[in-house]
Design a protein around this nucleic acid. Structure first.
Lengths: 202, 202
DNA sequence: TGTTGAGGTTGTCTTATGATAACCAAAATA
DNA sequence: TATTTTGGTTATCATAAGACAACCTCAACA
């Protein structure tokens, strides 16, 4: 990465600070005020330099149109949902009980969220009550995947198997029975997503 | 948290999406365009409602002056170590096999790192081979804590119990025996840290 | 049945903000 | 020494964008 002049570094630091503290980028005049200079022309040149050196991206014509190209953090903040509703592929806002950051490497594609695990039906797969399951939203699954599915309006965490003429949701706990869904029996199953990670706080 | 109308929810989701994708909040007209309505007045009322219900904060008089009150929690990048060396409280640089970000909330105090779990000795505590154990460096532990300890130069993950005249390191697997360390028997134990979290990638 | 609130429209006003011109000065560099 | 780069000034302009007035519709509700 190309080197920055001290002045350019100050500008970049200010932009990062703004994003951190107020949640949106500064205007040219905000930056000018911080540097105690007047006018916006010098600032534009700084931004041009920062863009040329690959630190930021300017979005011409939009106010506060500055984004960092530097990986600001190698992580992404995802909502923790306490419950999943039948039918909706994305978690409802009112079910969000907080946010939790996770390494970007865990997010291959598609929308993801954390689901707070309830019950002990997956105990033999080392998934305990209270764990955070990282769920990647997807409508289908491969055999053997651990999925979040809604069945008659209730959400469950189970292993998924699609067989000849029925679908099997298998718990990882001998105290629970397989759930068998045959076509045309009125039972409605819809897959919300696949579990791709587990986080437990001890 | 107060309930949102479907329309307000769409607005909130759009704002979150903008922040996620472009790095800065939308303008009133951006939101209007997304909702396919004309004019900005309706949008202002939505934002007022969202602010009244505590979901966002408006910064009057500034363009794109919207911030989420739900604070996206920050995260910290920690080293993943594949092995722990006896004696050294901090993992050696040469043992670092990568970095992994985790939510700041998991880091109460002190230096921490991830340890790649080897073996199945903690299987009944739902800790599997290959899991990442979040370890907080500390020299002592409470009874019952899961700790990383080095014993005669080898690192292990076990539950820790300090009894009258000996220390017990107990696996969570019936196939393994307790490790008993009595004072003055030449066995050297040192506690590297306590396991405060587990992450598993599926 | 009247009232309230969510949701929307058109239009206007003002300010915030990006873009740019014309020019200056010091420092680094060929 | 000539030239480029960095960093800056004072202007001006067009437009992006927030604020708001006046008014409309519809559903929920006591």
């Amino acid at each position: 990465m190309e080197k920055l002049t001290p002045r350019q570094k100050k500008v970049l630091e200010f932009i990062i600070g703004c994003l951190d503290e107020q949640g949106y980028p500064p205007t040219l005049r905000d930056i000018a005020g911080y540097l105690k200079v007047s006018g916006t022309f010098g600032i534009m040149k700084h931004l041009d330099a920062l863009e040329r050196k690959g630190f930021i991206k300017k979005h011409s014509g939009t106010s506060r149109g500055i984004t960092l190209t530097l990986p600001p953090s190698r992580s992404i903040s995802l909502p923790i949902v306490g419950a999943v509703r039948a039918g909706s592929p994305h978690p409802a806002v009112e079910d969000i009980e907080g946010f939790f950051s996770i390494d970007q490497s865990q997010l291959k594609s598609g929308a993801s969220f954390f689901l707070r695990v309830k019950g002990d039906s997956m105990i033999n797969d080392a998934i305990l009550e209270g764990d955070l399951a990282l769920v990647r939203s997807q409508a289908g699954a491969e055999n053997g995947n651990i999925v979040v599915a809604t069945l008659d309006g209730e959400a469950t965490l189970k292993r998924y198997y699609r067989l000849k003429d029925y679908i099997c949701l298998r718990p990882a706990n001998p105290n629970y029975d397989d759930i068998i869904i045959r076509e045309g029996t009125g039972k409605e199953i819809s897959i919300i997503g696949r579990v791709v990670g587990i986080y437990r706080s001890l």
